[in-house]
């Protein structure tokens, strides 16, 4: 009998409509996917469709689905799941950038085949390849990502791209690829620290889980420390771990997570924007 693949992570994620989308009958424009591969390696992707694009909900769905295939292929072809170390920064950035450009071209083809403009499918993308050794991440646009080390210290995975306006960002579909300065828009990082947990989220949840607009006494102005809020993430991860230890099924945990994203507290409940968050916690001895 084939040996069952042992899981080393418990991961939960969901995308729920924000209040404004519910009120105005706008579809959820966020999408997400996650999948554990082997030896504790896995991939999480979040995409947030542009509010100003008519079919961005379809764009974000396409991006997470095809993005998952592309990044799984990278992990497999490079035999990372059996490697003792993570790739170098330069190598990862080149691979990530090439894959994201390929994904953009696939989206352009999809747009053409479905008689749409590419911009109508505009979506951001955030990718985290998690492993027992560390995390590889890449992204275009806004949203937040974070991870915690074994001491329970939370750190950001990347810096969201924000324009002059609070709701202004760039997308996979934006005119950034021909630019000689494309590296300003595609950020990739190798985190060489063993992770205890990680998160990816669309910007609809950033104000509720990250410190992103706080007062700097010295400079006497507001700034964005891009700091995952420990009092948010540590209880959430502890809850996830306990649910798994209490032998709740993945579906039961996902149901709890969906409820939390919909109405976890008053602020989350009243959030107008769509809300997506993926949380993963590492179980070095396996999840069952």
């Amino acid at each position: 009998m084939a040996k069952k693949k042992q899981k080393l992570w418990v991961v939960v994620g969901d995308s729920v409509m924000g209040l404004n989308h519910v009120k105005n009958n706008i579809p959820c424009q966020d999408s997400h996917l996650y999948e554990e591969m082997e030896n504790g390696w896995g991939i999480a992707i979040v995409a947030d469709g542009a509010g100003s694009a008519d079919y961005s909900h379809q764009g974000s769905q396409f991006v997470v689905k095809e993005g998952m295939s592309l990044f799984k292929k990278i992990v497999t072809e490079n035999k990372w799941t059996t490697s003792k170390k993570l790739p170098e920064q330069d190598k990862w950035h080149k691979l990530a950038k090439t894959s994201l450009k390929q994904l953009r071209n696939m989206l352009a083809k999809e747009a053409k085949q479905t008689n749409k403009e590419l911009g109508q499918l505009a979506s951001t993308i955030m990718v985290a390849i998690f492993s027992p050794l560390g995390i590889l991440c890449t992204h275009i646009g806004d949203g937040r990502g974070g991870y915690s080390n074994s001491k329970g210290e939370w750190k950001p995975l990347f810096t969201p791209w924000k324009g002059e306006y609070a709701n202004e960002t760039i997308f996979l579909t934006s005119d950034i690829w021909a630019d000689k300065e494309v590296n300003k828009f595609v950020e990739s990082k190798v985190i060489n620290e063993k992770p205890f947990a990680f998160t990816l989220m669309s910007d609809g949840l950033e104000m509720h889980s990250f410190e992103c607009s706080v007062w700097d006494e010295k400079e006497e102005k507001y700034y964005d420390p891009n700091r995952p809020y420990q009092k948010f993430f540590n209880p959430v991860v502890n809850g996830l771990v306990q649910m798994k230890q209490n032998r709740m099924t993945d579906d039961e945990i996902k149901g709890k997570w969906n409820k939390f994203l919909r109405e976890g507290n008053e602020k989350i409940k009243n959030e107008p924007d769509d809300k997506t968050m993926i949380i993963g916690a590492y179980f070095p001895n396996g999840t069952s």
Partner: peptide
């Protein structure tokens, strides 16, 4: 019991 719980940070609102 067994629900997710979390505290949210104080962030200054966009204008």
């Amino acid at each position: 019991a067994n629900d997710f719980l979390a505290e949210t940070p104080e962030n200054f609102e966009q204008k």
